[in-house]
Design a protein around this nucleic acid. Structure first.
Length: 256
DNA sequence: ATTGTGGCCTGCCCGC
DNA sequence: TGCGGGCAGGCCACAA
């Protein structure tokens, strides 16, 4: 989500431009029943009006359809040969033409393209946004409490559920819960008022500071988030588990 | 409805 | 030096 917000700001450069040509060489990357020809027809000649972001979904509004871009973990956005992020943790720093999954060329020059080695992202027209929860960057304490309330699922699984809170990924959730000192395996609905409030405070602060720093891979836990890693706060051996289907690192000493 | 599981994409890195 | 296998995260289909 942090990365996607940086991409959104980069994509803002395209506002006011007109689409001249669309290249979509990878049919697998096109979602929602569109193909290279139909997406080109739908977008060519259109003017980019605005950009938005909901969770990990980047929306590019035009005077025609809205273009929806998803990046998975390995996708990068490049606009006019400028990348918002130089290196992604799980992607190589390389930018090979064969990994260009989707390119929009603008009238008068310039382009917007998605480069994704592992094809984890995707492109969609007028994506359905009704199933996304409150965005993590703006969620209120009451909104977070409502998202967690009366759920027996592990707290981490609930936070990763995009229909409850939109925008949190695996690394970010580990970082937030580590800072908040809460065990990711706790039932989401079992938090006290004080814990839920503490979680909300750390959630907002973590997202904001990592956004300012430039990536979710820059968290204080990240360097230790590997087998045999020690807690940067108190030196305890970190616990490595699978929670919510995701590899999870947490400190058994201060996350309770 | 809620919760959990497994598969998919492909590059990279480890051990042999 | 090459190769096989495991791993990475987001999302989706599917099961109970």
């Amino acid at each position: 989500m942090i990365e996607v917000e940086l991409y959104r700001r980069l994509a803002d450069r395209a506002v006011g431009r007109h689409v001249a040509q669309v290249e979509a060489p990878d049919g697998w990357f096109l979602k929602g029943g569109i193909d290279a020809a139909s997406v080109a027809t739908a977008l060519e000649g259109r003017e980019v009006l605005a950009t938005r972001r909901i969770g990990k979904l980047l929306l590019v509004d035009t005077d025609g359809p809205t273009l929806g871009l998803r990046f998975g973990m390995t996708g990068r956005l490049i606009v006019d040969d400028t990348a918002a992020i130089d290196v992604l943790e799980y992607a190589s720093g390389r930018d090979e033409a064969r990994w260009d999954r989707f390119t929009v060329r603008f009238a008068g020059g310039g382009l917007l393209r998605v480069n994704d080695p592992r094809r984890l992202g995707g492109v969609e027209l007028d994506p359905d946004t009704t199933r996304l929860g409150h965005d993590a960057l703006s969620i209120t304490a009451a909104g977070l409490r409502a998202a967690l309330r009366s759920s027996a699922a592990p707290l981490k699984a609930r936070l990763l559920d995009q229909a409850r809170v939109a925008g949190l990924g695996n690394l970010l959730v580990d970082e937030i819960l580590w800072r908040a000192g809460i065990d990711p395996a706790r039932p989401a609905g079992g938090l006290t008022e004080a814990e839920a409030s503490r979680l909300h405070r750390h959630l907002r602060a973590t997202v904001r500071s990592l956004l300012a720093d430039g990536g979710s891979h820059l968290g204080r836990l990240q360097a230790s988030r590997l087998r045999g890693g020690l807690c940067p706060k108190d030196g305890a051996a970190l616990l490595r588990r699978t929670i919510g289907g995701r590899t999870t690192y947490s400190c058994p000493r201060h996350q309770t």
